[in-house]
């Protein structure tokens, strides 16, 4: 809680009197820095560990296939709906994995783009600004098609569809991430920059000890929001590049069984079950990471 940081000495309470003489109670002061507070750090580390596990472990491969189909007169077969769940989860795993790997590219490339955009030389910053604006305002679907034919047109280049998906999602969301980084860096008060000049800090110290620790609390929740947004865009890759994600699962089942209602509603539900908790976690992070600047 933000208020606890500045709380003066706790006022004596009734329980203080009841304590036997000679024992002390320490009130551990919460750190002023967001990255030293356990209630921020522990979930962040857990999430990062979980995501990296996701990036390393591959989904079991195999064709999506249903065991049985309900009769033609059944408009919504619940048995059928539930027996598709394990296969849907497999597709969802592939989608989530593609999201995480794509976002790794986005988060690192975004920082580079942000720094290029911030450059003082106009012949660097203007093209960077145009590229960012261009990629941001064109559909990721068209970009995926473009990447696909570009790979096809380049004889020396062969890439897996899933790798094309990582790269396109990575570049697309890098432009979003770069805006987040830029906003985060700009939100560091001017006095902090001036103070680091006044104290004659070298650039490395200035960036690592002054600017970035203050920029991250503004950047991290925005990046989290974009991670959720990227997760929502990755199924487009199933339609364009035929990667084996949730939408591919639903399309396969529909083509095999001629029953579109159950698989599509199932992936809708499965999607909400992942993206809603994720969005909620990001909101929690946003609230707990608030940095005091007085």
């Amino acid at each position: 809680m933000a208020d606890d940081n500045h709380r003066p000495e706790a006022p004596p309470t009734a329980s203080d009197d009841a304590r036997p003489a000679g024992t002390f109670e320490f009130e551990i002061e919460q750190s002023h820095k967001w990255y030293r507070r356990p209630e921020v750090l522990v979930p962040v580390i857990l999430v990062v560990l979980g995501l990296s596990l996701l990036a390393v472990v591959e989904a079991p491969s195999g064709r999506f296939r249903s065991q049985f189909t309900p009769g033609r007169d059944v408009s919504f077969g619940w048995d059928y709906f539930f027996h598709l769940v394990p296969q849907m989860l497999r597709g969802l795993y592939t989608t989530a994995r593609a999201t995480v790997l794509g976002f790794l590219i986005a988060a690192s490339l975004g920082l580079v783009m942000a720094l290029l955009r911030r450059s003082e030389r106009p012949y660097v910053s203007l093209p960077a600004a145009f590229v960012i604006e261009f990629i941001r305002s064109t559909p990721i679907l068209v970009q995926m098609f473009f990447a696909q034919v570009l790979v096809r047109a380049t004889p020396w280049l062969t890439l897996n569809p899933i790798v094309i998906l990582f790269i396109v999602v990575g570049i697309h969301y890098a432009t979003y991430a770069s805006e987040a980084y830029r906003a985060g860096i700009n939100s560091v008060p001017k006095g902090q920059w001036e103070a680091s000049i006044a104290l004659n800090l070298d650039p490395a110290t200035k960036w690592t000890r002054i600017i970035i620790p203050q920029a991250v609390p503004n950047v991290l929740p925005t990046l989290g929001n974009y991670l959720v947004a990227a997760f929502k865009d990755v199924p487009i890759g199933d339609a364009v590049l035929s990667t084996a994600g949730v939408l591919f699962f639903a399309n396969t089942i529909r083509a095999d069984d001629f029953r579109p209602v159950e698989p599509y509603l199932l992936i809708g539900v499965g999607f909400l079950l992942v993206s809603l908790p994720a969005a909620w976690l990001v909101r929690r992070l946003e609230e707990s990471i608030e940095y005091e600047r007085d």
Binding site: F231, P235, L247, A250, P260, V261, Y264, L265
Partner: peptide, 18 residues
Amino acid sequence: GISSIILLTIMVIAIPIL
């Protein structure tokens, strides 16, 4: 929370049947 492409496929393919 829902992906727009999934909402779109549900709306275009599943909802008219359901």
